[in-house]
Design a protein around this nucleic acid. Structure first.
Lengths: 258, 258
DNA sequence: GTATGCATCTCGGGA
DNA sequence: TCCCGAGGTGCATAC
């Protein structure tokens, strides 16, 4: 990429443009910069080539050349983003009062600045969440146990919501905590605290079952130590993945040309 | 923004360029697209103006006009990103074998394509993490209690690591769980598990203290019910925030001109 | 490689 | 508004 010298007058013009377009359009700046964040944590980012992305809601995202997570960012809801020239260099400065967080990005050089006029009213639709899995288990209780009869979903306790409640064939109460991913020790603890709620507060002895994709030995230890059950449910078989086969749903099913 | 017609020959040239530069440079495409993700979850994104950002490590990020989080993405480590022309439209398709996840982005129109040659060897340095706070409390135990004497940091139990262990002036054992953020019910239960471990397995009665930024009434209820202590530690006073005052550390302290 | 827990977690839903 | 838990959590670190 050609690196044009950033002449002062050119920079001044850019700043005016940026201030003018802020909150109306997406702004992408590409250049060499350093950054300092101060708030919930402090961080310093030495000089390097980055992409700064400012959205219409003034979310500010500074990306490096690797990984999904940005190097630095500022959430929307911060005050106005300041674009200034200091020492002939572009400085982008934001302050988020709610969390008292400042982000300061100093551009040594700007290689390219682009202002996009984006229109997007669409929103992402999702299928296959943990709550979908709970729903499915509620209506297909035999997956949990052939004698399991669910009685409630999203049952509230003072310790939080539990996913499924039911009984076995003898009427003994069962509670189920559902995780789509692999179980963590925290998940086992979560289930334990629901069981404790019933035993200590409601004076009911319940069987706790943790449903998850997989169980590590440490998690199994916690479960066994607390007399809780583990049930491996491969949700991929419940929500058949299209990944391995020819997609059954293609974009053509959705796309409408104007 | 001027919306140039995407002529087939032009698109073909873009595809060649994209394939050529993949993994060598950052790619930014701006246009109108739909997207389908299939893997850990299924999602469909209707048509709208988006920014597609492909990093050198083949991380792929599709951003909408709001919020920090991308609408769709693919982590690095996926197979080669496919850029194809289908029905005279650019299709970006990736498959990540590890998690069997596909992402397909179909561009209805491309407004701008940019290829950046980024050089960034610098890495972010961070100060003020939870572990920094634990370290600080270990060396300044009077913050927890004037009679607290720490004996261990990162002490392992079968239920997980606890942050601090120590004794009071009478030699009674104390364990401390440290959170930098506000305490959650799960935090209180985690501490309870640790206390139970000592009482049930090691047959030692210990006092549990939860250190956090703030405590909700629900969390306080759980703590009180289990005879656990809450200690509000304003870490902002420990790692003085520069947010409210004139920054003491400015970029000038770091920046070295080549 | 897997497992574990932090994160400037972000985000959405519910009270 | 705050509180709470899910997340395609991502990510580093410990094993």
């Amino acid at each position: 990429m050609k690196r044009t010298k950033n002449l002062p007058e050119k920079q001044q013009k850019l700043v005016e443009k940026l201030l003018d377009e802020a909150c109306k359009k997406m702004i992408v700046l590409f250049g060499s910069c350093t950054a300092i964040f101060d708030g919930r944590i402090k961080s310093f980012l030495p000089k390097g080539d980055r992409m700064l992305f400012v959205k219409k809601d003034e979310t500010l995202i500074l990306h490096g050349s690797k990984g999904l997570k940005p190097l630095n960012w500022q959430l929307s809801g911060a005050g106005k983003i300041n674009y200034l020239i200091e020492d002939e260099k572009l400085v982008v400065r934001t302050y988020r009062p709610k969390t008292k967080e400042t982000l300061e990005i100093l551009f040594d050089e700007i290689y390219q600045a682009t202002i996009y006029d984006a229109h997007d009213s669409a929103s992402l639709s999702i299928y296959g969440s943990e709550s979908d899995l709970s729903d499915y288990l509620f209506s297909h209780p035999e997956i949990i146990d052939k004698n399991f009869q669910p009685t409630a979903r999203e049952f509230e306790t003072p310790f939080g919501f539990l996913d499924l409640r039911g009984v076995d064939k003898s009427g003994n109460p069962i509670i189920v905590e559902v995780k789509k991913r692999g179980a963590t020790p925290a998940d086992a603890h979560q289930l334990k605290r629901y069981v404790e709620y019933f035993e200590e507060v409601e004076k009911i002895k319940v069987q706790g079952i943790l449903v998850a994709q997989s169980f590590s030995s440490k998690v199994m230890n916690v479960l066994r130590a607390n007399n809780l059950e583990a049930l491996e449910v491969p949700w991929q078989e419940i929500f058949p993945s299209l990944a391995n086969e020819k997609p059954k749903v293609t974009m053509d099913d959705y796309i409408k040309d104007d």
